[in-house]
Structures are given as C-alpha cells and as structure tokens.
C-alpha cells in the first residue's frame, strides 16, 4: 500500500467545562491513503465530529489536543495558524452538515466560490476564477451554472446549497475531503443526488475522503474502510465488508442489528442495544460499552486495547473477546428471543 496521506497518532481531545473534563476523543490512531474513502461511524457523542474538527484545527481554544496529526509530511498540530489557513480549503477541504451555516448569506454563491479559489491562488484572474467557479457548479449538477453564480444562498434549495458547498470544497482540488454528515439534513431523493455528486467530485479530483456519518446505509455504498467509534474511542476498524459481515465487536454488531431493513420482511423484530450511550464526563469503568454489552464479564472492568485480527492489522477491534466473537454468526449475534 502507498504511504499514507494522513496519519493520526494517539489523538486525544478534552474540553474543560463547568461540569468537569469531557474526554471527547481518547487515543485514536488511524491513517488515510491517497484517493481512498474512510467512513467514520458512530452515534451522537462518539467523538466522530470532534476528531475531524481537530484535524482541521477548527476546535475552540479551550480544547486540549494531544497526539500527532501528520498530513502529507507535515505535522498539522505544529503548523502556525497562517500555514494552517493555507491548507484549509486548499489541500484539505471540509463539507459540513448544514450548508446554510457554511455559506455567507450576504454574498452571492459566485462571490464565495471565486474567493475560495483566489484566496489560495492569488495569481488567478477574477475572470478565470469565475469560469472555474461556473465549471465547478456544473460539475456538481447545478443547471445554468453561469447564471446561478449570481444567486444568493437563500435562492438555492437545500440540495443545491449542499452542492455549492461541495463545489467550493473541491474547487482547489484538495487531497483530502472531510465530509461531516453531508446528507443528513437532506431528503432521501436529494440525498441520493448529493452522494452521486460527491462520488463524482472525488473521482474528478482524486481526493481521499473521510466520511463522518451515523448512517450505516450510506457507508455501505461509499466507503472502502470503516472506523466505528463509541464513547470517544475507536472500537473497530476494517474493510467495509469485514465490518458489515465479519465484525468482531459487540457494539458494531449491535449497531448493525438495530437498523430496520428496507428489504427485509416486516415481521423481523429489531435487536436494539439496551441502555444509552455513555457520558463523556463520567464514563463507565473499564470498557465503555460494558454496561450495554450482553457479552460483558468481570474482565471487562479493565479497558481492552485494540486487538489486531489479521496480519496486516487492517481489521482491529477493541474487545477482550474479539477472537471468540468471531465464531458467532454476525446476523444472529444481536438477536435475543
């Protein structure tokens, strides 16, 4: 495999609040290779968005960040704010869940696209930048792109705004695209359009992508590798098919068996995970999933490490019983009758 584009080592993020220290992300390590799509999956409070914000250095100054983030040979946490700004929106771009908060309502879409292009390429003329902006909008499937550049964000529908933001994100041909719940606010038919656009944009630019989502359906069709987070920890990581069909983690399995299927018959009963996700301030002792885990034993009062499940360490799981779980049938593991 090629050398990684992004290499995160032992990343931890903590916030000091009035209620105590929130350990939002604990010691996560992962790599992203050029051109690949890595999905980061988790429920609310799992730390999936915070870790992406840490990569982009978008967290408030109250956040304590530890660890190393190496992007294309540079240490991101050591970069000056000025150098970091050169990377943001250029080599690394981010697509947010809510495009209305990311687009400035008082400037036209064209203005913002042109600015995004010229800020990183000052030598490009306004006219050339506008031409590029129009071709970007056309690439993301906005009809009459040239005229649409003169619209304000409020004149765009939700799906179009999201496309405009994708256009902005890829306008400088980033090496890495971070998409944080890019379709969560959209209707199903629009979501399908936007996913198609993201795939097309990624193909056109060859960018690697980190897709942050709670939607396991979305992940199944887009990602090559999946990383499951829970309670601020990396719980399992592996190739997409491995995670869906040969997961060796009770949380991942529980998550998959919780999803109602649009293809299955209606009589099947869902197998939810009991209880609720842990508090980040006062997490359970030992394995953070222990209180909800049906396989938990006394051993689980000590925190498990990530166990390698193959030689290349592509598949790793944070569970004392990762190997034993492997003997079970994934589909049946979650169901209790």
């Amino acid at each position: 495999m090629s050398s990684p584009l992004l290499s995160v080592r032992d990343l931890s993020v903590a916030f000091h609040t009035d209620d105590g220290v929130v350990n939002a992300v604990n010691d996560i390590s992962f790599e992203v290779h050029p051109g690949e799509t890595l999905a980061v999956v988790g429920e609310s409070g799992s730390g999936k968005s915070v870790s992406a914000m840490a990569l982009m250095r978008l967290l408030p100054s109250s956040a304590r960040i530890q660890g190393t983030i190496e992007f294309d040979g540079r240490d991101l946490l050591g970069l000056s704010p000025r150098d970091m700004r050169r990377l943001q929106g250029n080599e690394i771009a981010m697509i947010f869940q809510d495009p209305m908060t990311a687009l400035n309502p008082v400037f036209t879409v064209g203005n913002q696209l042109v600015e995004a292009i010229r800020i990183h390429n000052p030598k490009v003329s306004k006219r050339a930048a506008r031409e590029r902006a129009a071709s970007m909008l056309a690439l993301v499937g906005i009809p009459d792109a040239d005229e649409r550049l003169d619209n304000y964000p409020h004149e765009f529908s939700g799906g179009m705004r999201q496309r405009a933001m994708i256009a902005m994100g890829i306008s400088n041909e980033p090496k890495l695209l971070i998409a944080d719940e890019p379709t969560t606010a959209l209707d199903v038919t629009i979501q399908a359009q936007v996913i198609e656009v993201i795939k097309r944009a990624q193909e056109a630019t060859g960018a690697a992508m980190i897709l942050i989502t709670h939607d396991l359906g979305l992940v199944a069709g887009v990602a090559e590798r999946v990383q499951v987070m829970y309670g601020g920890r990396l719980f399992e990581t592996g190739p997409t098919e491995t995670i869906y069909y040969r997961s060796r983690n009770p949380y991942t399995r529980g998550l998959i068996s919780s999803i109602p299927s649009a293809t299955a018959r209606t009589e099947r009963r869902l197998a939810p995970i009991p209880g609720a996700p842990p508090s980040a301030i006062n997490p359970p002792k030992g394995c953070v999933f222990r209180p909800r885990c049906q396989h938990a034993t006394d051993e689980c009062f000590t925190e498990p490490g990530l166990r390698r499940l193959d030689e290349a360490a592509l598949h790793q799981s944070r569970c004392h019983y990762a190997e034993q779980l492997g003997e079970m049938d994934t589909a049946a593991s979650g169901s209790r009758t």
């Binding site: 199944a220 069709g221 998959i256």
Partner: peptide, 12 residues
Amino acid sequence: SAVPIADPRVEL
C-alpha cells in the same frame, strides 16, 4: 431506490 441499504453487497 434512493434509500441506502446497510449491506455493502446489496448496495454496490
């Protein structure tokens, strides 16, 4: 057809 299905083989 627009609803993503949480099964990579079906989805692809």
